[in-house]
């Protein structure tokens, strides 16, 4: 470390080049996002003609118009998304941790086979299962409700989370289970009072990823939700694009996209430390 500092002070030009290069690459990588941000504050007419950002053209019009453009406030779609996310998180936390506890701690017939099958589902593309799943939900009249999007989460379908939690639980000393057993706990009490709270770092990770993947999900929400009042934020954004007439409201789309990104940003800021902690303690490399 000290050698690097020495070189930096000895050769300021080298350092300048390095920092300049890094800044250029960083700018290149984040350009699409920056362009999105700046375009959302520009009048629609100059979004594609003027690549730079001119303060004289600064406007909040896209936000004001976009918020109410779709017949109802954009907040409704955000709330729909949030509702689905909340249920998905609760479902995943509850069901995946219980399934992981069973795989990690309990002895039952064919547990190894069951674990292997569970892992195989990790490799199963979503597109293979979506059709039979759709037919099943359609037959019980659950299409165009949130059920197809959240109900599976209560049955531990996210193999990745189960795997993550199994690994974490395996790292918890068995003495804790046995001490709890001596203290009078049954298997469920051991799970609820000991394993579940001790898994907190891994559970934070599960909650955050559940939120991210559900919030950013477009495909399955598009398939299952058909009426506008049920639409989630990603589906609502899609309404700004009119593929047939070619007259898409780009400015508003960008403005609302930015609003849709806000919860993710806030979440990241709030849980940055736990996220790193969770990734470090579960042995999952980002």
């Amino acid at each position: 470390m000290s050698t690097i500092t020495d070189i930096n002070t000895a050769f300021p030009i080298r350092r300048l080049i390095r920092v300049g290069l890094l800044a250029a690459v960083a700018l290149l990588m984040s350009y699409p996002l920056l362009w999105l941000v700046s375009s959302s504050f520009k009048p629609e007419s100059i979004i594609f003609s003027d690549a730079g950002f001119d303060l004289n053209h600064f406007t909040l019009q896209n936000y004001i118009e976009g918020w109410n453009k779709l017949g109802m406030p954009f907040g409704v779609f955000m709330l729909n998304s949030a509702f689905i996310c909340l249920l998905a998180i609760v479902g995943n936390l509850f069901s995946c941790s219980l399934a992981a506890y069973a795989f990690a701690r309990l002895q039952f017939p064919f547990s190894r086979t069951a674990f292997a099958i569970m892992l195989v589902t990790l490799m199963l593309p979503m597109h293979v299962t979506i059709l039979p799943q759709y037919i099943a939900f359609q037959s019980v009249g659950a299409v165009n409700t949130v059920l197809p999007l959240v109900l599976p989460k209560f049955f531990a379908v996210d193999a990745f989370f189960i795997f993550l939690l199994v690994q974490f639980i395996r790292g918890i000393p068995r003495d804790l289970d046995q001490a709890a057993e001596m203290d009078g706990c049954n298997k469920y009490q051991i799970f609820w009072y000991i394993i579940f709270p001790v898994c907190r770092p891994a559970l934070v990770l599960v909650a955050i990823f559940s939120f991210l993947w559900t919030w950013n999900d477009f495909f399955s929400q598009l398939i299952y939700l058909s009426s506008a009042e049920n639409y989630t934020a990603p589906l609502a954004l899609n309404l700004f694009i009119d593929a047939t007439s070619g007259e898409s409201a780009w400015g508003m789309l960008f403005a609302m996209s930015l609003i849709t990104l806000l919860p993710l940003f806030v979440l990241f800021m709030l849980f940055q430390r736990q996220l790193a902690e969770g990734i470090a303690t579960t042995g999952l490399k980002g």
């Binding site: 000393p173 003495d175 046995q178 001490a179 709890a180 000991i194 001790v198």
Partner: peptide, 8 residues
């Protein structure tokens, strides 16, 4: 227990 097994 040898490891004390205190609930952390």
């Amino acid at each position: 227990f040898q490891s004390y097994a205190l609930y952390p």
